[in-house]
Design a protein around this nucleic acid. Structure first.
Length: 842
DNA sequence: CAGTGAGCGAGCTTCCGCTTGACTT
């Protein structure tokens, strides 16, 4: 048995380090945090110094058990979690949970996974830094208090199941406010003037007028003045310039660049990077640091020298500028620079090459450029055209890599032909094109990450999960429309010939962009109205200062918590008691028939439009909003149209065909059968022909494709891809099969395989009692009796269960019947009265 | 699932940050 146990956070890291350290050392991993607050309760004693109640999370019990037994056998335990707040807390939790003896425990830290760095760390151990631990506790407790006190207020005032938090709520706010800017934006047209000239040698180049004309008449007048004009080079300047490489990737910049260049989602980037990391090809992918180890710098230099030559090398160390960065790791870089590419799955390979190029480029010399600016004058007016050119004199880092840009307008500056001042120019054409000012663009996932990082909100490990959370809560949706056609005018002057064209372009595509839902907007408005301090963009930055002071030892963490909570908690109580329910109501107008108000609001099942109010004698009329309609954008006319639904389209095969908006979108009903319209399809605009087309398609899709053991086999596409259905079983059809043309043999094969799998799954089957025990996922097993399903923990060896034991388990764990509660409900229904107003003012 | 939208009111939902997992309807 090895004398030393080293504990790190990541198993991949453990593997690497073990190689450096030799036989005297065992290296194990904690898989991140091992202890946390319980998820079912607040877990913070707010009355006693905010003492947290830590528990070992259920999925970490095995890890702790294993580490404990390893630590018992070791002579020295080295806690080598990361050198930041979270890492220090992990070290502390390990010391506590493993009950480590102080004399045989050392805390070590290193920022880079190199043999030198690790050996050096072992030579200079320290003890656990409790100030840093306390800063982490403050962070953890603050997030818990904010999240677990605000969320229930939302359940009460908006809708169940919602959530709020320091990071997610501000993320939603950014998206909501951007959307409002777009909604309020008024697009203004103007005319941009472009031209093409040729020099005396006949080489042509493009130029433009620095300012646009605001009306068509002005633009046209300008073009007319240009007829027959003589053009000359008025001025010509040439200046040297340089471009420097961007620093190597952090998590955030990697996500942005992979989104721009490879069109990866943030989570896809992280999955691909994780694979590369586990394969030992790149350094750790969750980092906020742009540092490179000396070893890495030398590795990059050697590669640059051999591949490009001396003049391309320029060693640089970058300074981190990210707010709140903790820099426990290196920047993201290849572990071996001599691998220009790696032989892995295609997408991983593309990401690797991006990382390689960026890291190599960061150690290369500046590009040297020459920028030329030409001003062109006409003899008939004083406006001057300008043309800009850029020539690369020495490419430097541009040989391997150029950073992408988010700016869609950026024009590539080309090479200008040689010209002299006062040289005469020939005009090929001048055009005036109608342009429209554009609203700010919606956030893409990567753009949101960039903004969050600028604000210092969230950490590298949480950017991707945060984006998932706000989508799971239905606060935000990903856009799916291609945009709309817009027509614009272009006038072109060629010689004395002035032509006008009407062209079209696509604008406003929101594909993959983050768009707030009605729920997102309503929740955001509620939070911003009542909890402005937590929703403030600078809230995180402010509390980070407090955490820093705690880490330095100049503040007591529970005092900081008290300062926050004494303000926050009374506000929560007050809002929970007194605030109005938030439904995002907007009055659109009046119903001409009844004179009652027409309003939109968030209902129990989503956004809806309503005529009249519940207090009226007569019941109000309701209708759900259709596709693409939101509380914010729906007009009075659109809202009134919704009351035409459900609409009868006619009769097909003896059944009435009806269209309407349902809870899950627009649909067509045909007798008892339902067919969804396409996402975004307008039910009001649906014809009988279109409905019949959908019905026929549905009938065809539902038609059995085969009959097996006298029972029909159907096929379909579900959340996890294509499947076939037989006897109520869903059978996944993987890529090995041609789903569109399944042969009879394929179908039989698939069914038989599934049957076998079902049989293999059963561990016990007591048919008389109707009780089964089956293998389930995560190494667990399930006890099944009729509709009751009880998950047994991993620790239970299900193969050894007896009928008696299983019956006892059912007795203990079966869900209590709710029959009594239900009876009460129906009985009370009739006697229900209007207590609304009195209940509210409690 | 394909309408509903209050009232009754059991018992549920939730945070951020550190890790990897292994397979569903």
């Amino acid at each position: 048995m090895a004398k030393n146990l080293v504990i790190v956070e990541s198993p991949a890291k453990a593997k690497t380090i073990e190689k450096f350290l030799g036989k005297e050392y065992t290296v194990a991993s904690s898989f991140g945090h091992i202890a946390d607050l319980p998820s079912k309760e607040l877990g913070v004693d707010v009355e006693n110094g905010f003492k947290p109640n830590y528990i070992v999370s259920s999925d970490k019990k095995d890890v702790v058990k294993k580490l404990k037994s390893l630590s018992k056998k070791a002579e020295m335990v080295w806690l080598a979690s990361d050198e930041d707040r979270e890492g220090e807390a992990i070290a502390w939790h390990l010391a506590e949970e493993l009950e480590l003896d102080k004399d045989k425990t050392r805390r070590i830290v290193f920022h880079e996974i190199t043999k030198k760095a690790i050996l050096k760390a072992i030579e200079s151990p320290r003890s656990i830094d409790y100030n840093l631990v306390n800063a982490q506790q403050a962070r953890r407790v603050l997030d818990r208090l904010v999240g677990y006190e605000l969320s229930p207020v939302l359940w009460r005032k908006v809708k169940g199941g919602l959530s709020a938090g320091r990071v997610q709520s501000v993320s939603v706010r950014l998206i909501v406010e951007r959307e409002r800017e777009i909604l309020n934006f008024k697009s203004v047209p103007s005319y941009r003037i472009d031209a093409e000239f040729a020099n005396e040698k006949g080489k042509s180049f493009k130029a433009k007028l620095p300012k646009n004309f605001s009306t068509k008449a002005e633009a046209e007048a300008f073009l007319k003045k240009s007829m027959g004009a003589i053009f000359k080079v008025a001025d010509l300047t040439t200046k040297p310039a340089k471009k420097s490489p961007a620093p190597p990737f952090t998590t955030s910049t990697l996500q942005q660049e992979a989104s721009r260049k490879l069109y990866f989602s943030v989570s896809k980037t992280m999955t691909m990077a994780q694979r590369l990391y586990e394969a030992g090809l790149i350094t750790y992918m969750r980092t906020d640091s742009v540092n490179l180890s000396t070893e890495a710098q030398n590795g990059a230099k050697a590669e640059i020298l051999s591949a490009y030559g001396e003049e391309y090398s320029h060693q640089r160390q970058y300074k981190g500028k990210a707010k709140g960065a903790q820099e426990a790791h290196e920047a993201i870089r290849p572990t071996d620079f001599s691998n220009h590419t790696v032989n892995v799955e295609y997408d991983q390979q593309r990401l690797y090459e991006l990382i390689w190029k960026r890291a190599i480029a960061s150690q290369m010399s500046d590009a040297k450029l020459e920028r030329t600016n030409v001003k062109i004058e006409a003899n008939t007016y004083k406006e001057q055209f300008t043309a800009n050119g850029e020539v690369i004199k020495f490419e430097g880092f541009l040989k391997v890599y150029l950073e992408g840009t988010d700016d869609e307008d950026e024009e590539q500056e080309g090479i200008l032909p040689a010209m002299k001042k006062a040289e005469n120019l020939f005009n090929n054409y001048i055009s005036a094109t109608e342009r429209f000012t554009r609203p700010p663009s919606r956030y893409s996932e990567a753009a949101l990450v960039k903004k969050l990082e600028e604000l210092g909100i969230g950490r590298p490990s949480t950017y991707a999960p945060t984006i998932s959370t706000i989508q799971n809560r239905k606060y935000v949706d990903k856009g799916a429309t291609e945009g709309e056609e817009r027509s614009y005018i272009q006038m072109i002057l060629t010689g004395d010939d002035l032509k006008e064209n009407k062209l079209t372009e696509k604008v406003g595509s929101d594909k993959g962009k983050l768009i707030p839902t009605d729920v997102g907007m309503v929740v955001n408005d509620f939070l911003v109205n009542h909890f402005s301090s937590v929703l403030d963009y600078n809230f995180t930055a402010k509390v980070e200062q407090d955490f820093d002071e705690i880490a330095e030892g100049s503040e007591d963490w529970s005092q900081v918590m008290k300062g926050f909570y004494d303000e926050f908690h009374p506000k929560v109580i007050d809002v929970a008691e007194n605030a109005e329910r938030e439904v995002g109501e907007r009055i659109l107008g009046e119903d001409p028939e009844s004179g009652k108000p027409v309003s939109v609001r968030l209902g129990k099942f989503g956004p809806m439009v309503q005529i009249g109010s519940v207090e009226d004698e007569e019941k109000p009329k309701f209708a759900s909003l259709g596709p693409g309609q939101t509380l914010a954008n729906i007009t009075y006319e659109e809202a009134m149209d919704l009351f035409q639904l459900p609409k009868e389209l006619g009769v097909y095969k003896g059944e009435t065909v009806v269209v309407s908006n349902g809870r899950f979108g627009p649909y067509v009903r045909f007798g008892e059968k339902f067919v969804s319209l396409d996402k975004g399809e307008d039910p009001l605009g649906t014809s009988l022909e279109r409905a019949i087309e959908l019905i026929d398609a549905k009938e065809k899709a539902d038609a059995p494709i085969y009959t097996y053991e006298d029972l029909p086999v159907q096929k379909g596409t579900g959340r996890f891809g294509p499947f076939i259905k037989w006897k109520g079983m869903f059978i996944n059809v993987n890529k090995k099969y041609d789903f569109d043309n399944l042969s009879d043999e394929d179908i039989i094969q698939l069914i038989e395989d599934k049957k076998q799998k079902e049989i293999d799954k059963v561990l016990h089957n007591w048919e008389e009692e109707g009780i089964r025990v089956e293998k389930a996922r995560w190494g667990r097993s399930n006890v099944i009796k009729g509709k009751i399903k009880i998950e047994l923990p991993k620790t239970v060896d299900a193969t050894k269960l007896t009928l008696e034991k299983v019956q006892a388990i059912i007795e203990k764990n079966a869900p209590k019947k709710k029959a009594t509660a239900k009876k009460k409900t129906t009985a009370k229904k009739k006697t229900a009265t209007k207590k609304k107003t009195t209940a509210k003012k409690k």
